[in-house]
Every structure is written in C-alpha cells, then in structure tokens.
C-alpha cells in the first residue's frame, strides 16, 4: 500500500508539471502560430501592410500625360519615372505634398554620367561618353532632352 502512495505522488507531480507546461505554452505561443506552417501567420499580414515609397509607373501617366507619351516612344521608354525623379508614393497620394526631385542643371552631368559615363565594365553596346571630353560644362539636357533623348 505504501508503495502505491509513492507512485501516486510522482503521478501527481507529473500531472502538475504537464498542466503547467500546457498553460505556459498556451500563454507564450502566439495565436496564429502554426495556422499555415511553422511560423506566425500574422507576420505575413504585418509585412504586407508595410508602407509604400515608390508609387510605380502606372501612377504617373494619368496626370503627366505629355511626358509619359514622349517617353513611351523614346530610347528611355524602359526607364520608370521614379528612377530619375525619386520615390513618389507621397506625391501620388497628395500631389501638392511633395514635389518630385529633378536633377539641377549643375548636377545634371554627374547625374547622367551615373549611367552614361564611359566605363569598361558596362556592356559595350550601352551608349557611353567620356564626360571630360564630351562638351564639358554644358548641361546634357541642352542637346538630349531626357524624356526623348537622341
């Protein structure tokens, strides 16, 4: 009889520990964990809800029709507006809140050179010039309008 009481004590201790573990697990493991896989399903929605900074090309054309039309037939047609004018989701939501960036005349040569400066590492077919020899001091846009470069 005394032996069985020993066993009952151990069994009671086990039950307490297991129930304690289950309660702790219930409190600690997030609600959505395991709903889709071995992760917190709510994390997917949290990442989806992160703020946008770039509005995307389709946001520009409805207002800036002339520029979009000029660009569509030019050699710069593959370049999205925000590549040169910066991240503009805020401008797309409230046009007066943020003015799109535009390279200033003085900075233009450095700006265009980022892509078009002669560099051996670039693909040979890509149009490149040496800005020190190619009409130094003149703003690129005087000869090459950026929306319809020639």
């Amino acid at each position: 009889m005394k032996d069985i009481r020993h066993l009952l004590h151990v069994a009671a201790a086990f039950v307490v520990v297991i129930i304690g573990f289950l309660i702790a697990r219930h409190l600690v493991v997030p609600k959505s964990f395991g709903r889709i896989g071995h992760y917190r399903a709510d994390a997917v929605d949290e990442i989806k809800a992160l703020p946008l900074r770039y509005a995307g090309e389709q946001a520009c054309a409805p207002c800036h029709r002339a520029q979009a039309k000029a660009k569509a037939s030019s050699r710069h047609k593959g370049i999205r507006c925000e590549s040169c004018h910066g991240a503009l989701q805020a401008h797309a939501e409230a046009p007066s809140s943020l003015k799109p960036a535009k390279p200033k005349e003085g900075e233009m040569r450095a700006f265009c050179a980022r892509c078009h400066e002669k560099n051996l590492s670039r693909p040979a077919k890509f149009p490149q010039v040496d800005p020190r020899e190619h009409n130094p001091g003149v703003a690129c846009s005087q000869c090459h309008p950026p929306h319809q470069p020639k």
Binding site: V44, I47, K48, A49, L50, P51, L52, R53, Y54, G56, E57, H76, G78, I79, R80, E82, S83, C115, F126
Partner: peptide, 18 residues
C-alpha cells in the same frame, strides 16, 4: 512583399533602367 501583393513590382525591378 508589401508591393508585389498589391500588384506592383519590387522596388529594384521598378527602378532598373535597363
């Protein structure tokens, strides 16, 4: 992920000029 789930391109693809 916050862009592609809204039908937009990733920012790097959106801004690649070539």
């Amino acid at each position: 992920y916050h862009r592609i789930t809204k039908g937009l391109q990733p920012a790097c693809v959106e801004n690649c000029p070539t």
